[in-house]
């Protein structure tokens, strides 16, 4: 916790943050304008889907993942933005004896471009690269802070302006994910045992639908997101999850941003309503944003 508070303070001091725009929204920074953000996230679950079986694990209790992310968005032009994110993540189980893990997780860099636009409808393209920035343990799920894979994410997005500052935003992304070098030199995936430390992580796609209100820099949004691996195996009966798992989840949530001037705040709440090989997470995040010229 001390580390998290320290990171928050540092980020605030360094702060000149702002128009928090994310890789998945239709908002752009103007040319030479930057927005820095520090976001605290807390996600936890008690119940999870062991393959399709919905259950708890009394030897884990509640599994909590906390994160502090530093984010920077910058307008190269008002139609082309670059966004960088680095999260520090920590896990903790309320019961049992599994050791919590913490560390810098995967840094990501995104390019977001506005394309064809007409009658309130705009097409966007987003490309992101995510790479682990510390040598964390990937194969100790659910305690691991990440899965250790490099990912290339390509997103197509359509935003549509509705009357009265309302908007609709829909996107779909494909996540190409690299193999992972596990600590162990053999592992079971499906019913096959692989005598190697090289682990194939299934690719994934995600899709989202957002309905929001945006006036100046203030925003309120309802969203539904779906994430699904393409292939992979399932958590075996009474086993732990593994990086080869075919994880699926559908979540709903609310996002809001309040930015009267250069300083702003955002918050997000999300809840997993259905899934497979994942925990039924409730997650909350709050961020401080600061807009500045570069």
């Amino acid at each position: 916790m001390k580390k998290i508070i320290l990171l928050l303070c540092l980020a605030l001091l360094a702060g000149k943050a702002a128009n928090a725009q994310m890789p998945h929204d239709g908002i752009y920074m103007n040319k030479k304008l930057a927005c820095g953000a520090v976001i605290y996230g807390n996600s936890s679950w008690t119940n999870f889907w062991e393959n399709q079986l919905f259950r708890d694990n009394k030897n884990i209790g509640r599994l909590t993942t906390e994160s502090v992310s530093a984010m920077l968005a910058y307008g190269i032009t008002k139609k082309l933005n670059v966004i960088a994110v680095v999260p520090y993540v920590r896990t903790h189980a309320s019961k049992g004896n599994l050791m919590g893990q913490e560390g810098l997780q995967d840094a990501s860099l995104w390019l977001k471009a506005k394309g064809y636009s007409s009658h309130g409808l705009t097409l966007h393209g987003v490309v992101g690269l995510s790479v682990p920035v510390s040598n964390y343990v990937p194969d100790f799920l659910p305690m691991s802070i990440g899965i250790g894979s490099k990912a290339l994410i390509t997103r197509g997005m359509i935003s549509y302006d509705l009357p009265k500052h309302l908007y609709l935003n829909s996107s779909i992304a494909y996540q190409m994910r690299s193999n992972v070098r596990a600590d162990r030199d053999g592992y079971l995936a499906g019913s096959r045992f692989y005598n190697t430390s090289d682990v194939a992580v299934p690719d994934a796609f995600d899709a989202a639908l957002r309905l929001g209100y945006l006036k100046k820099d203030n925003q309120l949004e309802l969203f539904a997101e779906h994430f699904s691996c393409i292939g992979g195996d399932h958590i075996r009966r009474n086993d732990m999850p593994f990086i080869t798992n075919d994880m699926t989840m559908t979540s709903v949530g609310v996002y809001g941003k309040f930015q009267p001037k250069t300083l702003g705040v955002n918050a997000k709440v999300a809840y997993v309503v259905d899934g497979q090989n994942v925990g039924q997470s409730f997650s909350l995040s709050v961020g401080v944003l600061y807009q500045f010229k570069l």
Binding site: Y174, M176, N179, Y194, N195, T196, D198, V199, A200, V201, P202, D203, I230, G231
Partner: peptide, 10 residues
């Protein structure tokens, strides 16, 4: 992605 993923194995 529709191709099966390969792993490095002896």
């Amino acid at each position: 992605a529709s191709c099966t993923k390969e792993v490095d194995m002896v």
